[in-house]
């Protein structure tokens, strides 16, 4: 057990000394997750609103599909995006394989269903009187959309936080699409996998502590937002 304790001590040493290799992986994680989240929110919020608000043929089937995509295995997404971005793939010319934007593309596929499904659920859960109230106060369709999303703001923030938790902590896409290239596409999760295989527990544990910190912050945010959404 001593090696675990020693590893933990060395891990805190790496974190507090600002070890460049550790923070390179943190930066790659935050950059790829941030890029993915920007696309996820830009697409997911309006799509989720439509799914929760509008009535159209096949809506139930779309809802089932989105719910199914919630449990997409990360390695399957990694395989799919790899196949798209490889030189022989349809998007090979984009030259995104083994790059941060390539990882972000895969993370977007992982996180988008979460935001769409949770936004749709939040919009469905809003008081049915809201739409009539907005219309009787003279709201245009665009104003109905904006105000409805604002009324559900805490639930939507919850959806965003849940999606961020998923994309920041996954390993399959980052490993397969990013290639785990040191100083470039090595993320926290891929670095932990590699360093553990090499017996470098200290660096693995340092990154694990940071990842746990991110997970804790995400969970605290989720708990707080759930409380605010209920009020």
């Amino acid at each position: 057990m001593d090696y675990l304790f020693d590893g933990l001590l060395q891990a805190f040493g790496l974190i507090f000394s600002g070890d460049p290799e550790t923070f390179s992986a943190v930066w790659a994680t935050l950059l790829s997750s941030g890029m993915a989240m920007a696309v996820i929110l830009a697409l997911g919020l309006p799509l989720g609103f439509l799914l929760g608000h509008a009535r159209f043929p096949g809506r139930g089937a779309v809802r089932t599909l989105v719910d199914t995509l919630l449990s997409l295995p990360t390695v399957v997404v990694g395989l799919l995006v790899y196949a798209l971005l490889t030189r022989r793939g349809p998007l090979g010319d984009w030259d995104l394989l083994f790059s941060i934007p390539g990882i972000a593309m895969g993370l977007t596929i992982l996180g988008l269903p979460i935001v769409v499904a949770l936004t749709a659920t939040a919009v469905e859960g809003l008081d049915r009187r809201l739409r009539h109230t907005l219309l009787t106060l003279g709201a245009s369709p665009g104003q109905v959309l904006a105000t409805t999303l604002w009324e559900a703001r805490f639930s939507l923030a919850l959806a965003a936080v849940a999606a961020f938790g998923r994309v920041a902590t996954e390993v399959g896409v980052a490993m397969m699409v990013g290639g785990n290239i040191k100083w470039s596409t090595r993320t926290i999760t891929t670095a932990i996998a590699l360093e553990t295989n090499k017996g470098q527990f200290a660096l693995g544990m340092a990154l694990g502590v940071i990842l746990l910190g991110i997970a804790l912050a995400v969970n605290l945010a989720v708990a707080g937002l759930k409380r605010m959404a209920r009020e």
Binding site: R129, L130, H132, T133, T136, G138, S140, P141, T147, E151
Partner: peptide
């Protein structure tokens, strides 16, 4: 005629207040 809803307004018996 969405513009007409800017001239006519309805108060229901259990109105909804925005948060």
């Amino acid at each position: 005629d969405a513009a007409l809803r800017r001239e006519v307004t309805l108060l229901t018996q259990e109105p909804y207040l925005l948060k």
